[in-house]
């Protein structure tokens, strides 16, 4: 059974990776793939159905929907990734510092984080975005400014846990500097969960960015961005539902891709190696053989009688 769960995870990781790579490729190669200029207005062809020239039809200004979607990837997805990079560039060092240093440093950082987290994130991002004025870059900044706090807190938690490992004590005993311990032992241990988190959050950020653009706070028309496209097509929802369907699908597929990827990254490796270790006599402690025992304990004690 465990085998099947594992392969299931691997399959989901592969599907996720393919989806993500596909979407990324679409963005990168948009100029090659797009049949026409995403900004070219052809009022004569407005709201046309799919055709050879416009595979997915045109929007209310006669622009090619497919081309706009492809170019939109660049904005929507790459913006999300930029926000992600900014968020993690702040939250990883801050979380690491708070968790590893502890004491007063930790208390000060955590107070700031708690205050930031006391405001609803999206609203705060809105406020910052409104203050800076509309525009994609401002939105990115607003997002990063608000979003880092939650991750810093999560990362601090991981660090606190990793810090208790005997191998951290061993490193200290052998004379390792704090910097070396923080990078070699702690950040390395946190790398995988951080990666999972990042992959999962890309989806969330993508959604939120599209949402804000939809509200008119992010990318501005006529820029081809998925949220903007959704917003543009809103008046035609009754007559031309396709217009909303395609950007919606693009968002959904990207988010799904990142979530599947995250799910798959969560537990790596094949089962064969760990089983060999637990019974082939290689590593006796920490073996998987101990796990069934643990789960069986309470069952054994309580009994299963009716």
């Amino acid at each position: 059974m465990k085998n099947q769960v594992k392969t299931g995870k691997q399959v989901s990781a592969w599907i996720g990776a393919v989806l993500v790579l596909g979407v990324l490729a679409a963005g990168v190669f948009a100029p090659l793939l797009a049949p026409s200029d995403p900004l070219d207005v052809h009022m004569a062809h407005r709201l046309a159905g799919p055709s050879a020239e416009y595979p997915l039809g045109t929007d209310h200004l006669g622009r090619c929907v497919l081309s706009r979607l492809l170019y939109g990837t660049r904005l929507s997805l790459f913006d999300a990734l930029a926000v992600l990079a900014a968020v993690f560039a702040v939250s990883v060092p801050v979380g690491l510092l708070a968790g590893y240093a502890g004491g007063r440093t930790d208390r000060i950082i955590m107070t700031v984080i708690d205050v930031l987290l006391a405001f609803p994130g999206l609203i705060l991002a809105l406020a910052v975005a409104a203050m800076l004025g509309p525009g994609a870059l401002h939105l990115l900044l607003a997002f990063a400014a608000v979003w880092w706090a939650g991750y810093a807190r999560l990362i601090r938690g991981m660090v606190l846990q990793l810090k208790e490992n005997d191998y951290v004590l061993a490193a200290r005993a052998s004379g390792s500097s704090h910097l070396r311990i923080a990078f070699d032992h702690i950040l390395r241990g946190a790398a995988r969960p951080i990666l999972v988190l990042a992959s999962m959050e890309t989806g969330t950020i993508l959604l939120s960015l599209a949402g804000l653009s939809f509200l008119g706070l992010g990318a501005q028309p006529p820029v081809p961005e998925w949220g903007v496209m959704l917003s543009d097509s809103r008046p035609y929802i009754q007559t031309e539902p396709n217009l909303m369907l395609f950007p919606g699908l693009a968002i959904a597929v990207s988010v799904l891709g990142f979530n599947l990827l995250a799910e798959g990254l969560r537990e790596p490796g094949g089962p064969s190696r760990s089983w060999r270790n637990s019974f082939g006599g290689a590593a006796p402690k920490r073996s998987r053989a101990a796990k069934p025992a643990a789960s069986a304990r309470i069952e054994a004690q309580r009994g299963h009688g009716e």
Binding site: A296, A300, G303, G305
Partner: peptide
């Protein structure tokens, strides 16, 4: 299953 706890038990 019914035997566990009633007829035989385990400690760890």
């Amino acid at each position: 299953n019914a035997c566990r706890g009633r007829d035989m038990a385990m400690i760890f």
